[in-house]
């Protein structure tokens, strides 16, 4: 069984330490909810796991199936079975979505798939996601709506079949029906053995995908690791109990936080006091 082990990870960007000692693990067939106020390092953690060159690991290790991937390039990590659905997928003009998808499918498999097989895969994945096939023939994400971009991320997940998939706010920009479709994909792939690390600010997605565990990131560290009752608690009361019960001061707040999301109101109040 594939397991991603993160040990004592310290990460800097532009000389500023953002993660200071993250330790946790995610296994195949398990869905882990990653919670935390905005600006506390959740996206950074996912990007670092995927090998984003802008982030510098100053200490700690990443192991996948006991293989050290800390110094692997991003494409090597993708080939090893990691996947990241981005919070804000880039628009890449001129690159035809299906050309990109096909290059990605071929890069992550031992054997190249035939044109015929690729189009069959594409056809069935777009149907599963109720995506218009025409999106596959357009420029990658260019002019896509927010929801179409997010579906296109899940389309890539279906085609690449990673071992561990990380989803960064996949539900933002999706309407209720689309969230249901994405949740169905997650459940189905989880049953087949995929592992998930999921960031979301909305209890709705977690209600549908029923994570196996929840972890909470505050100040660039995982401060809580527990069952899914944590999600409910944070949804109802915010993050204040972390201060009162664990004595951890919540350091900062991102100015453009989403006011209707899990826990943020409580954070605001904590900071005002």
């Amino acid at each position: 069984m594939a397991t991603l082990k993160i040990s004592d990870l310290h990460v800097e960007v532009e000389g500023k330490e953002i993660l200071n000692g993250v330790t946790t693990q995610i296994s195949e067939g398990e869905t882990v909810a990653l919670l935390g106020p905005n600006g506390h390092g959740k996206s950074t953690l996912l990007n670092v796991i995927m090998g984003h060159p802008r982030y510098k690991i100053t200490q700690g290790t990443l192991l996948l199936d006991d293989v050290d991937i800390t110094n692997m390039t991003t494409d090597e990590r993708a080939k090893a079975g990691l996947f990241l659905a981005l919070q804000n997928p880039a628009e890449v003009p001129g690159v035809i979505n299906s050309d990109f998808l096909r290059a990605a499918v071929n890069a992550t498999r031992e054997e190249k798939v035939s044109t015929y097989k690729f189009y069959k895969m594409l056809d069935s994945a777009t149907k599963e996601l109720k995506m218009p096939f025409d999106l596959a023939t357009r420029s990658l994400n260019e002019g896509f709506s927010g929801g179409e971009k997010k579906r296109n991320e899940i389309l890539q997940l279906l085609l690449l079949e990673p071992k561990i998939a990380m989803l960064d706010e996949i539900d933002s920009g999706l309407d209720v029906d689309a969230i249901q479709i994405v949740a169905d994909v997650i459940k189905k792939e989880e049953e087949k053995g995929m592992g998930f690390l999921v960031i979301s600010h909305y209890a709705r997605l977690f209600d549908l995908i029923k994570p196996t565990r929840a972890i909470v990131m505050i100040n660039g560290r995982i401060v809580l690791d527990g069952d899914t009752s944590l999600i409910k608690r944070i949804d109802q009361t915010g993050y204040e109990f972390i201060k009162t019960e664990l004595g951890i001061e919540i350091e900062k707040e991102n100015a453009n936080m989403n006011t209707v999301s899990i826990g943020t109101c409580a954070v605001k109040e904590t900071i005002k006091k």
């Binding site: 390039t73 993708a78 080939k79 996947f83 981005l86 890539q156």
Partner: peptide, 15 residues
Amino acid sequence: NDEHIFYLTSRGLSV
């Protein structure tokens, strides 16, 4: 664009 390269390499393409 570096972000474009990251995006494509995160799907297995070499730089």
